[in-house]
Computed example of a mutant assay.
Amino acid sequence: MSADLAHIRQVMAEADCLYTDAQVEAAISQVAEAINGELAERNPVVFCVMNGGLIFAGKLLPKLDFPLELSYLHATRYRNETSGGELFWKAKPEISFIDRDVLIIDDILDEGHTLAAIIDFCKHAGAANVHTAVLIDKTHDRKARPDLKANYVGLPCEDRYIFGYGMDYKGYWRNAAGIFAVKGL
């Protein structure tokens, strides 16, 4: 069952723009600069978390000026809903990262259940070190673990339901150029 497109369009029309396209692009450049400074000599395996991390990874990777191996993984809790459920693995990593540094690229660190599960998976599967890069870090006190922090963060964000740059509203608006908050959420 597809969403009501009139509703989907209205959500965008009424949304609050939290970060413009230019602000997001500047933040991605800063993340790339930090990663270049720290991981360039570590021969990392980079995993894009699908689907949310796709746009952030696509913008970030060309700014990384060192050799790396790239793959993806797909783990989700949302499944096109607006609140999280149990973790569901759609695709696990296929490149070996035993005794290697791993960089996980994702769209958002919200409560962090998905990211924490991915980090644990990589550590238990033999990664030497696991680094995380997120475009958005939501500001609230509901993190899955109190010590869960991304190594590289593009932008902080208030605790609202957001979309754009890979993040979706009911499966839509991942392609929005900017970070937007749903009115009333």
Rank of each mutant, 00 (worst) to 15 (best):
Y172Q: 08
G178C: 00
N151H: 12
I28R: 06
L64M: 08
I108V: 13
M50D: 01
F163G: 01
G126D: 06
P44Q: 11
L135E: 00
Y72A: 10
F47Y: 13
A27V: 01
Y152F: 11
A181G: 01
G52S: 07
A75R: 09
A127T: 01
A177T: 03
A91I: 08
R79W: 05
I162E: 02
A177H: 12
R42F: 13
K63F: 07
I55L: 14
A22W: 07
C17I: 03
F121Y: 15
D16G: 00
L135M: 02
T114F: 14
T76S: 15
L103S: 02
A6S: 14
S2L: 15
A32R: 05
L103C: 02
G53H: 11
V49L: 12
Y169T: 00
A125G: 09
P156E: 02
Y78C: 03
M1C: 10
H7C: 08
R42E: 15
V45A: 10
K123S: 13
V134E: 06
L39D: 09
G154W: 11
C17M: 13
V102H: 06
R100T: 01
I28W: 10
Y152E: 02
S96D: 14
Y169A: 00
A3V: 11
A91R: 15
K143P: 06
Y169S: 00
A133P: 02
I162M: 05
G164M: 06
S71Q: 03
H140C: 04
L148T: 04
A91Q: 15
E38C: 14
T114N: 13
E38Y: 13
H131S: 09
D65A: 14
E14I: 00
E94I: 07
V102S: 05
T20D: 01
F66W: 09
I136E: 04
K92T: 02
A91P: 06
E86N: 12
E86I: 03
S96N: 13
G85E: 09
A117P: 07
E69P: 05
K63P: 01
K143C: 08
L155A: 07
P62Q: 09
Y19R: 00
K63H: 11
A144G: 03
E81L: 13
G112Q: 09
D4M: 08
Y172G: 04
A116Q: 12
I108G: 08
S29A: 15
N51I: 08
Y172C: 10
D120C: 07
L148F: 10
D99C: 03
R79D: 14
Y19Q: 00
D4E: 07
V102C: 05
Y72T: 07
T139W: 10
D107L: 10
A128N: 12
V45C: 11
D147Q: 11
E158N: 04
S71G: 14
W173K: 01
G126N: 07
N151P: 02
P67L: 13
N43P: 02
T114Q: 13
G154L: 06
G126Y: 11
A128T: 05
K59Q: 11
G126A: 08
I179V: 07
L39T: 06
L61G: 06
G126H: 09
M1D: 13
E69Q: 15
L18Q: 00
D159Q: 04
H74K: 08
L68H: 10
V49A: 10
G53L: 10
R77T: 06
I118E: 14
L103K: 03
Q10N: 12
L103P: 02
S29N: 15
A144R: 10
Y78N: 02
D107S: 07
N129E: 14
A177W: 09
L109K: 03
H74I: 01
Y78S: 03
L109M: 04
F47D: 01
